Amino acid sequence: MPQVEVIGTTTLAPGSLASVTSSITPDGIALEFGIPQGLPGILPEIAFASFITFAASFTNATRIPFGTLTEDDTGQIRQISDTNLVIEPGYYVISYHVSALLNPQGYMQITPYYNGAPHIETAIYFMNAADNTSAYGSNTFIIRMTSVSDFFLTFNTNARATEGTLTLSIIKLRDIT
């Protein structure tokens, strides 16, 4: 029975045609392959940023203040004030966590604003049953920013809110195509 022997593989220039060279051997056939190198890939520009607040007093019906923890080097997620971001078009993962000490007992609601409107469907709501207890909530969602958009979080409560904390992380998944 004849034998098939592979004697090597050569990398060819990108865009070349693949090739197979054969030669007869005393025991059968020998093959040598030529495989074109792929074109270099282009990695998408990765955009991400994170923001924090620690030990703050939150006021009813106002935006939650925050500072930049990790700045987006691409400029697609920009902090323009102590309560407001501007986010370029694309698909994003947004994750935020808020806690505050409420006294007397009451509720807190945090409502994200993006794409020109508040979004109660991605809000946090927490109600406590005792004075001086911590309220906490978090949410993670994927959104499509259809155009350059402001982003902020509005805090609502019927109690005094102290020791407020916020962590906010935003990661761009891809551009709109």
Rank of each mutant, 00 (worst) to 15 (best):
S19T: 08
M108V: 02
T68D: 02
S57M: 07
A161K: 00
H119P: 00
P44I: 03
Y107K: 05
T9C: 13
G90E: 02
V4Q: 15
F33W: 08
F66V: 03
T165F: 06
N60G: 11
N84M: 13
P118E: 05
R144P: 01
A30G: 01
P14G: 03
G15N: 07
G34S: 06
Y113G: 00
Q3I: 10
F58G: 04
A47M: 08
P26Y: 06
F126N: 07
S19Q: 10
A18G: 10
M1V: 11
G41Y: 08
A61V: 08
F152G: 02
M1K: 04
P89M: 04
Y114G: 05
T157M: 05
Q37R: 15
L43I: 09
L101F: 12
L85K: 01
A49W: 00
D27L: 15
S138A: 15
T140M: 14
L69E: 14
N132G: 14
N103S: 11
S50A: 04
S99T: 10
S50L: 03
T111M: 07
S50T: 00
T59P: 01
R160P: 02
A161V: 01
L69K: 14
N132L: 10
N139P: 00
G15P: 01
A56R: 09
I35Y: 14
L173A: 11
S57F: 06
Y114W: 08
P2R: 09
G116K: 06
E5N: 15
I64Y: 04
I142K: 09
S16Y: 04
P44M: 02
F48V: 04
T83I: 14
G90V: 09
T25F: 10
I110Q: 00
L101C: 08
A159Q: 03
G106K: 08
A159E: 04
